[in-house]
């Protein structure tokens, strides 16, 4: 089992979700977050340039069985890119997952995902 965590641009959330649904991955967790990679984004307030230290990002967490890892990663990769790829498009982390337990039934492992 793996945990696929993707940090993407908020405006690509819809596209990524559509791609995941197409790949038959429905169970995901999405959260709003802020972070800083290499991207910069200036905003103007009364002519004063403000460079936020942290930019708004969207985080997607997907717990999946081995056979779905590449499917999920590819779906996100293709959907989250702006054009041919821009600074700030985000990252995907794949980490191994020790245990997964469904609260309702107490089931464990691959079946619980």
């Amino acid at each position: 089992m793996k945990l696929v965590t993707a940090i993407i641009q908020p405006d690509k959330l819809d596209a990524v979700r559509e791609a995941l649904v197409k790949a038959e991955i429905y169970r995901i967790t999405v959260s709003r977050c802020a972070g800083r990679g290499r991207a910069e984004d200036l905003e103007l307030y009364r002519g004063q340039k403000v460079a936020p230290h942290l930019l708004p990002k969207t985080r997607i967490d997907i717990a999946c069985n081995e056979e779905f890892v590449d499917v999920a990663v590819n779906a996100i990769l293709n959907a989250a890119r702006h054009g041919h790829g821009e600074v700030g498009d985000g990252k995907i982390f794949v980490t191994s997952l020790d245990k997964c337990i469904r609260i309702r039934t107490g089931e464990e492992g691959g079946d619980a995902i």
């Binding site: 596209a15 200036l42 103007l44 936020p52 930019l55 708004p56 702006h82």
Partner: peptide, 24 residues
């Protein structure tokens, strides 16, 4: 489409309305 997904605030005005949602 891209501008619409980014939102009018960011795309057209370079600001955002609700500060709390975007921790600085």
């Amino acid at each position: 489409d891209d501008g619409e997904m980014a939102g009018l605030d960011h795309q057209l005005h370079g600001e955002h309305g609700y500060g709390l949602l975007n921790p600085e």
